[in-house]
Design a binder for these strands. Structure first.
Lengths: 157, 157
DNA sequence: ATACCTGCAAATGTTTTGCGACTAA
DNA sequence: TTAGTCGCAAAACATTTGCAGGTAT
């Protein structure tokens, strides 16, 4: 707690995400390093889904000496502290997305241009719960991905 | 076609799956080898989801000289001809399941015991279509996985 | 006869780990 | 001061590919 307050004053923490991270670091006796700061910045600059490689590229632009190992390790850290969510789509690539203050959503994924449209459909969520109850199952979380073709790509075809 | 008929008589094709495979092989000038026969048999003996490694183990019990490369290649072949479906769950492992005469289904996946419950919910499928229309998207296929705890594991806890 | 197929070894691509040097607190 | 961190190189892991010899048709 003290650390968090010090950081807030000294380093002028300007994002809630940075607060979440520093709080987690403090609670777990971990350190807030230059690398983690740069990677957080790059992470906050991302939109939608990105791979470790994508993030590494962003990071290298700011500080080329930061290695890929650190990016992988830091993404795990972000996942643990609730800033990032790890996910895997059909093509098998591991992607990350923002998790903090980002609501759950499902995806429409275009098989041609690769665009991901984020969607939420409360009606479907309700039916999922109903389905789970029927099987005496308790849902913790879910994923739903609809693969097909987006408007643009349908027209082009 | 001729090949299929010959096979039916000579090799006594007893499964529809074997017919599907030999038909596909014939249409594409591919060969029905001992390895493919053994791997098909092992494949037909599987239930639910399995990895390439799982299948290799089964195959090795019948014929230890069959290599992993052949299993990988044959699983691709089965996927192409419609016998198998390739899928990836949250843990990132590539799994296969039967596809021929197996309806599409979604999954309830227990995070404790790992059990997969196969489910279908036409109401949800309808809403998925509605959702897609709203975004001018045409769905080709989808996946939905609900992660949580099954009845048994909820009671144990 | 001649595509096609096989198993091996090697390559691939992604992610993890061991380690000595370094650094935040 | 010292536990945690870094970047590198190497390992690990799952999957694919090149190739020379073997096989189905």
């Amino acid at each position: 707690m003290k650390l968090k307050i010090i950081f807030k004053r000294v380093l002028d923490l300007d994002s809630k995400e940075e607060q979440v991270l520093t709080e987690y670091l403090y609670q777990n006796d971990l350190k807030y390093t230059e690398q983690r700061r740069v990677i957080l910045e790059a992470f906050l600059d991302t939109e939608c889904h990105f791979t470790a490689e994508d993030l590494l590229a962003k990071v290298k632009m700011v500080n080329p000496s930061i290695g890929y190992t650190t990016v992988y390790r830091t993404l795990k850290l972000f996942t643990e502290c609730g800033l990032a969510r790890e996910m895997r789509f059909e093509d098998g690539v591991t992607c990350y997305e923002h998790r903090f203050e980002h609501d759950h959503h499902d995806h429409l994924i275009c098989k041609k241009c690769g665009r991901h449209i984020e969607v939420i459909e409360p009606e479907i969520e309700k039916l999922q719960e109903k389905l789970a109850r029927k099987h005496h199952f308790r849902i913790e979380h879910h994923r739903m991905e609809l693969y097909g073709f987006c408007e643009k790509c349908r027209i082009k075809q």
